[in-house]
Design a protein around this nucleic acid. Structure first.
Lengths: 126, 126
DNA sequence: CACAAGTATTCCTTGTCAGGAATATTCCTG
DNA sequence: CAGGAATATTCCTGACAAGGAATACTTGTG
């Protein structure tokens, strides 16, 4: 998962923009009116959202029509899938870990043991 | 949706922490080792994640065991539901809007018309 | 009770970002 | 082609966030 996606959504006005665009496409000016922001700031925010791949800007004469792109949301959805067991499975991960901690008091290889073996590997510096 | 959740995940190291904790709970020190960061910075990052409600910190003697909390992910999942039609329905929102733009050239109430009527209202300053 | 491991906190510095204001650009219309 | 609408860009300033370094706190142990 790219942090830039979260970064783009971390700004309240930008998050607001995204939620407005979820209802319908809007131009820069329309966004500015709804957000009570001045046009230049909206342009900047939209640019950032656009560079993050969240918003697509279509030029129609004078105006720029902003629409949401699906990809980042699909990616987010896929990312979330990894965490879905957190509230679905609900097994006692902390309990397991506490057990493991006690073991580790005498065990020389303390760190990477309790892998639940359901996650794709991304970490681990061997 | 709270921007603070995105804000907490916007920092690459913090996102990394979350992805590590998705596999198993870890202490501050273990996180520091995996992230190649110094302990104080990890403590700070974890504090921010904790204040955002993403991570729960349990004190066990000397150490602090960090685990993921489910709520923010559930909330994110619910939030995404609103956007799921973006890639599932795939109806031509931009085309609709272009139509509407032409209409609006003569129509005096240009802004709020094309409500798809499937979204909870949060915006609109009447 | 001194010591060490694990962690928290503070201070400092640097870089980044958001908004304001002014200005430039593009495009339509008469 | 002049003028106005919609938007982009630039410059500036103030706030804030992140890492480094040093230090304080806490807990188990000898």
């Amino acid at each position: 998962m790219k942090a830039t996606t979260f970064s783009a959504l971390a700004e309240p006005n930008r998050l607001h923009i995204v939620e407005l665009l979820a209802r319908q496409p809007l131009t820069i000016g329309e966004l500015a009116a709804r957000l009570q922001l001045r046009q230049p700031q909206v342009s900047k925010h939209v640019r950032i959202l656009s560079e993050a791949g969240i918003v697509e800007v279509e030029a129609v004469a004078n105006r720029r029509i902003c629409t949401l792109r699906a990809e980042p949301f699909e990616e987010l959805d896929g990312w979330l899938r990894t965490y879905r067991q957190l509230w679905e499975d609900r097994f006692d991960r902390l309990g397991d870990y506490l057990q493991q901690l006690q073991h580790d008091a005498s065990d020389p290889s303390p760190t990477d043991k309790a892998d639940t073996s359901t996650h794709p590997d991304q970490e681990e510096s061997p």
